[in-house]
Structure formats: structure tokens, C-alpha cells
């Protein structure tokens, strides 16, 4: 795969049975001095190869901070992070860049409108991670084409600009872009929340298909419904802490924490009786106490 770092690739293969991502006791703080705020506290997460894990959380729960910390964009104040067996806790900018260049871990952003450079063609965006790795242009273009097919897009989009694509198409391009380096872990931050329902279904289908390809997915979302069908495991993040973890079915059907219960009671459903307003009130009161 990567011609630039063969020894690193071997190291990864040795570890193929271990976790792709191991987060233990992670604390993250923002700001300094009196303005210092805790964003994450004691987060522990373990993701096996090929596993799909949903992280549920609402605004301010710290879910994006979690993703950004794992990707090295935000420094952790305590705890450890291991990516494919490699302890990255004390990494400096240079080590991070080397790690990222190997393409082991990739990221899909929430906003498909802004996650592709509006001045670059789809082909240029798709090949970028490969070109950064030092893959030759023609070789990169060839590989980009094959990944376009994986997200059900046709190659005639390659020389278009993002502005000419629909939101769903753009998000699928973003997914393809994250896959071109054949990563072992892709973190998706709200991949479908900016899409309308038709596009949402399409992107979710693609993500489901991906699960058979052996890449591990971390699926961050505020929407239990879209995660429940795609993830094996679900973990619920509330005010910077993981309050509940379990299989998707268990979390949805036997929620333990009041917040999870409120989440479930709040999701609008089609045929269910308009869920009990009083029950939600009670849960809100319980949580704010």
C-alpha cells in the first residue's frame, strides 16, 4: 500500500489482532487559567479492527473534541491514546504528521459543503491524501477512480467542482477521500446530519457496506436512529463523560442512564403515540438536578 513507510506497515500488520484504537482515561481541557473548562473526563474506548462504534452525544457533550483529540488536533491533558498499537500520547507535530501520512486513520467532517476545497476538482480532492503520501499523480488518479465506485458515484464527476455537486454527492466524495489511503480506522463526525433523508439513507447504506471491508468506523452523531442501524456498539457521551455503553440493540431497548432515556423519548417517531410529554419533563428535571 504505502511505499514510503514499509516498516511501519509491518508493525501495523503484526498488531492486526489488537485494537485499532485504545483510549484510556482521557481528559481534555480547553482554555487556561480561570477560563479553563473541562471538555472530556475519563473517557475510555476500545475499538477492534473492523468494528463499527457509534458515539452518541449532543452539542457540548464533547463528541467532536473526542474525535479531534484522537486525531491529534487537540492536545489531551491526561490519559493515553493508542492508534493501531502505537502510543501517540506524547507525540509532537512531526511525529503526528508522519503517523497521519501513513493513512492509518482518516476523518470525515460533518459539513459536506465546507469539507471539500471549493476551488479543487473532485479528482484533486480525492487524490490529495495519496499525493501527500508521495504517490505519483497517475497512480493516485487510478486509485481514486476505484474508490469513487465504492461510494456509488460515476467517474464523470471527477473534473467537476464541489459547488456543482449535491450535498449527498459531496458527502460521498468525502467518504471516498477518507478511504483512498486504505485506513484501518475512519472517524465520521456527524456524517449524515447535514443531509436530507434521501441522501442520508444513501450515505448510511454505503457506510453499512464498508463494514464488510474490514475498516473500523467510529460514527459520531446526535441521532440515535441513524447510528443504531449502522453500529455494532453504541456509547453515549453526556457532558464530557461516557454514561452508557452497550450493543446497539441493548442501548436502544434497555437504556439505563436517564439521559439515554431522554434521548430515546425525544426522537420523533412516525407511528408511535406522541411520546409522553410528562415523562420527558420528569427526565429533564432528574438530569438538571
Amino acid at each position: 500500500m504505502t511505499t514510503t513507510a514499509p516498516e511501519a506497515k509491518d508493525a501495523v500488520r503484526e498488531d492486526a489482532t489488537g485494537s485499532v484504537l485504545e483510549v484510556a482515561g482521557l481528559d481534555v481541557h480547553y482554555g487556561r487559567g480561570r477560563k479553563r473548562r473541562r471538555a472530556l473526563h475519563g473517557v475510555t474506548l476500545d475499538i477492534a479492527p473492523g468494528e463499527a462504534v457509534g458515539v452518541i452525544g449532543e452539542t457540548g457533550s464533547g463528541k467532536s473534541t473526542l474525535a479531534r483529540t484522537v486525531l491529534g488536533l487537540v492536545p489531551a491533558s491526561a490519559g493515553s491514546i493508542r492508534i493501531a498499537g502505537e502510543d501517540v500520547s506524547g507525540y509532537g507535530p512531526r511525529q503526528w504528521r508522519d503517523l497521519r501520512r501513513r493513512g492509518v486513520i482518516q476523518y470525515v467532517f460533518q459539513d459536506p459543503l465546507r469539507s471539500l476545497d471549493p476551488d479543487l476538482t473532485i479528482e484533486e480532492s480525492l487524490t490529495e491524501p495519496l499525493l501527500i503520501q508521495g504517490v505519483r499523480r497517475q497512480e493516485a488518479a487510478l486509485r481514486a477512480r476505484s474508490f469513487l465506485d465504492r461510494v456509488h458515484l460515476t467517474t464523470d464527476l471527477l473534473d467537476r467542482l464541489p459547488g456543482e455537486l449535491s450535498g449527498g454527492q459531496r458527502q460521498r466524495v468525502s467518504v471516498a477521500r477518507a478511504l483512498v489511503t486504505e485506513p484501518r480506522l475512519v472517524i465520521l463526525d456527524e456524517p449524515v446530519s447535514a443531509l436530507d433523508s434521501a441522501n442520508r439513507v444513501q450515505v448510511l447504506e454505503i457506510l453499512k457496506e464498508l463494514r464488510t471491508s474490514g475498516v473500523a468506523l467510529v460514527f459520531i452523531s446526535h441521532d440515535l436512529g441513524s447510528v443504531a442501524g449502522t453500529a455494532d456498539r453504541i456509547t453515549v457521551l453526556y457532558q464530557g463523560e461516557l454514561v452508557e455503553t452497550g450493543t446497539a440493540r441493548a442501548v436502544v431497548n434497555q437504556p439505563q442512564h436517564p439521559y439515554t432515556r431522554l434521548l430515546l423519548g425525544s426522537a420523533p417517531t412516525l407511528r408511535g403515540k406522541p411520546a409522553d410529554r410528562a415523562e420527558r419533563e420528569a427526565l429533564r428535571a432528574l438530569l438538571s438536578a
Binding site: 497521519r100 501513513r102 467532517f109 465546507r114 476551488d119 490529495e128
Partner: peptide
Amino acid sequence: RSPYVEAAIVSGASIGWIVRRHVWTK
């Protein structure tokens, strides 16, 4: 601060790459 620049950073891009490829045109 735009997501596409962060996406490039996550893919291991250097500052030179980001300036040449993303910043200059804007």
C-alpha cells in the same frame, strides 16, 4: 480554520502543501 484544511492536515499535509494547494487560491 476551514474543514478542508483540517482534512488535509489529518492526511499529513505540511504547511507548504496547505498554502500552495488551499490557501493561495483564496
